[in-house]
Simulated scan of single mutants.
Amino acid sequence: MKIAFVVGEPSGDAIGADLIRALKGRNPGDLELVGLAGEAMQAEGMTSLFDIDELSIMGISAILMRLPQLLRRVGQTADAIVAARPDALVVIDSPTFSHRVAKMVRARLPEIPIVNYIPPTVWAWREGRAAKMRAYVDHAICALPFEPAVMQRLGGPPATYVGHPLMKEPGLAAIMADPRPLAGRKPGSPPRLVILPGSRRGEIDRLAGDFGRTLARLCEILQGVTAVLPTLARHQGRIEAAMASWPVKAEIVTGGEAKWRAFAEADAALAASGTVSLELALSGIPMALGYKLDPVAYYFRHLVTAWTAAMPNFIVGHPLVPEHFHEFVRPEHLARRMARLLTDTPERHAQLAGFDEIRRMMAIDRAPGEAAASIVLDLIQRRA
């Protein structure tokens, strides 16, 4: 069996590796892998056409600057997959790149099934993409429980929820098994805030100053607050430089284990809007979110049609988590909100109850990789 993969960033690489392991378990014979892979997929025996770090770009302005290179890589990837004539193609996330490859492969090899693992966020913006996907995607494998219904409503391809990759993260699993976060802070212990200004340089640069001023004001409102800021090792210098001007400093920690330990000890979070909001919700940590787009993306903000940008809100279907964008990222406002979330208030209890509901909605009885492998193999058998 030969299966082609197209991934464009580390998160997709981890999902692809999980799927490959499941496919190997279901197909103990030879399994040939072609296409694009990151380090995790390469560890499973796959050779990548080129380094996917070339595709790890974020934001409209960055994409426009790299467009010629991206289009060249699209053609190269599609040519290689067509030449390999795989039994199936699996494209994972990164729709700006992976869907262009899928379209070209469908035009030249219409007989092979194409699966989109982690489809584009049609529920957030450009809903028309869902219906267009039917021409080149046979099945969408979703990581959020509401996505299959959205795909059906918008006329997209058949879709199945298999669970979020986060559900297999050992650090998160340990927190979810501990009732302490949902029970609240131990009486008498000082409030602990986790600060998460983003995982990309632009996000950090745009939010770090406001988050630092928020912490300083919060410490005036609520005595005894301590703060921790988990970040990637490559961003530590950037965070330290930004924090140099903070009136109150946070403890900086790096690495996956340190991040989950910070989550386990946190009572509330101030975070950049993104996937981390789902991590926090599943960890039972009340939060407020902030975000500032880059100037080019801000110009196109009218294209966003979603009623919220917070994944927890989408999942429960109501504005559970407060969001603050651009001029509404106001330290005085955020500090007062965080004080409410760090203490025994209706706002804190409402979020904790909502997070408990999210856990129930996202619960799965089968590993995501196993469920995804069944979908891929079923499509191959039906096309045989």
Rank of each mutant, 00 (worst) to 15 (best):
R73Q: 12
A40Y: 11
G369D: 02
E44N: 00
E327Q: 14
K24Y: 07
L67V: 05
L379H: 02
D93N: 13
M46F: 06
A149I: 11
V253P: 03
V316N: 04
Q152H: 10
T214P: 07
R213K: 15
Q69S: 13
I221P: 05
R383V: 12
A183H: 04
F146G: 01
K292Q: 14
A272T: 11
A384G: 14
P120Y: 02
F325G: 06
R238K: 13
H99R: 13
P95Y: 06
D344G: 10
I239V: 04
F5H: 02
A227V: 05
Q152I: 07
T254S: 03
S374R: 14
Q351I: 05
A177K: 07
L282W: 03
I285M: 00
E127I: 03
Q236Y: 01
I20S: 04
M311K: 06
G25I: 01
N313T: 10
P28R: 06
Y291G: 04
K132G: 08
V321I: 12
P10R: 03
G317L: 09
A281Q: 08
Q152L: 13
R234S: 13
I221Q: 06
A88I: 10
R100E: 08
M361W: 04
V90M: 11
V74G: 09
V316R: 06
R72S: 14
P247A: 07
E44P: 04
T343P: 09
P95Q: 00
G16H: 03
A43P: 07
E327F: 09
Q223V: 12
V105K: 09
V150C: 10
V228P: 09
A288M: 08
P247R: 05
E9Y: 05
P187S: 03
T275W: 00
R238N: 13
Y161C: 03
R383M: 12
P187Y: 04
S61N: 14
H318R: 15
D18T: 08
S199D: 11
L172Y: 02
A363I: 02
I252P: 11
P322Q: 08
V162L: 03
M361H: 11
W260E: 03
R382N: 12
L154I: 10
A22Y: 09
R336H: 11
R153L: 05
L64T: 02
A183E: 10
